[in-house]
Simulated scan of single mutants.
Amino acid sequence: MVNAMMNPMTAMPSSSSATGMGMGMPVMAPNMMMVPRCTMKMEKCAGGMKITCMCDDPAACVMMQNLCTMMAGGMCSMCCTMNGMTVCCCNMTMGACKVEMTANGCCVTCTSGDKMCCDMIQACCDCMMMCMKSGCACCLMMGGTPVCCCMC
C-alpha cells in the first residue's frame, strides 16, 4: 500500500540479516501495523472541533474507514511527533466524539455542551494545527489504535 506509513508509536522497522535473506530487508515486529496516510484538516466548530481525514488512494481510504468503524466509541486522541519524538498528545476525554464516513475518508467531531470543556477542545485544536503547520506528523487514534496519520 503506497499511502500507508508505519506507526512510529508502536515499533520501528529494523534491517537485519536474521531473515536469511542478508539483503537488509526491513523486518516487521509482531506489534507493528501499517496506518493509512491521509490529508488531515482540523478546525474549530460550535462546541468543539472537527477533524477531517481524506485519502487519495482508495485502498488506504477503505482501510481507514474500516479502522474508524471498528474503533468508533473508543477514546479519540491525537498525537503530534517530530523526528520520532512526541511533541504533543491530546486526549478528547472532555467531549463526545462522533465519527462520520465521507466519500474519501472520515470526519470526527468532538464536542461538549460544557463551556470549559469546549474551550479545552478548541485549545487542543489550536495546538494540533500549530504543530502540523510547524512540520509535525499527526496521528489520529481511537481507543489507542491509530486510524490515520498525516505528514504535512
Results as ranks from 00 to 15, higher is better:
1 M>I: 09
2 V>G: 03
2 V>P: 05
3 N>G: 11
3 N>Y: 10
4 A>H: 09
5 M>F: 13
8 P>C: 01
8 P>R: 02
9 M>A: 15
9 M>C: 11
16 S>D: 15
19 T>P: 02
20 G>R: 08
22 G>K: 09
23 M>L: 14
25 M>W: 05
29 A>S: 14
29 A>D: 14
30 P>T: 06
31 N>L: 09
34 M>Q: 14
35 V>I: 08
41 K>M: 06
42 M>Q: 07
45 C>T: 11
47 G>A: 05
49 M>Q: 05
51 I>G: 01
54 M>H: 13
61 C>N: 07
63 M>Y: 10
65 Q>K: 06
67 L>F: 14
69 T>L: 07
72 A>C: 06
72 A>R: 15
73 G>A: 00
76 C>P: 10
77 S>P: 13
77 S>N: 08
79 C>F: 14
83 N>G: 04
85 M>N: 08
86 T>P: 13
86 T>W: 10
86 T>Q: 06
88 C>V: 09
89 C>K: 15
90 C>N: 04
92 M>K: 04
94 M>D: 02
99 V>C: 02
99 V>W: 00
101 M>N: 04
102 T>N: 00
102 T>F: 01
102 T>K: 01
103 A>K: 06
103 A>I: 02
116 M>E: 14
116 M>Y: 07
118 C>A: 13
119 D>K: 09
119 D>T: 12
119 D>E: 08
120 M>F: 07
123 A>M: 13
125 C>I: 03
127 C>G: 15
135 G>L: 02
143 G>Q: 11
147 V>S: 07
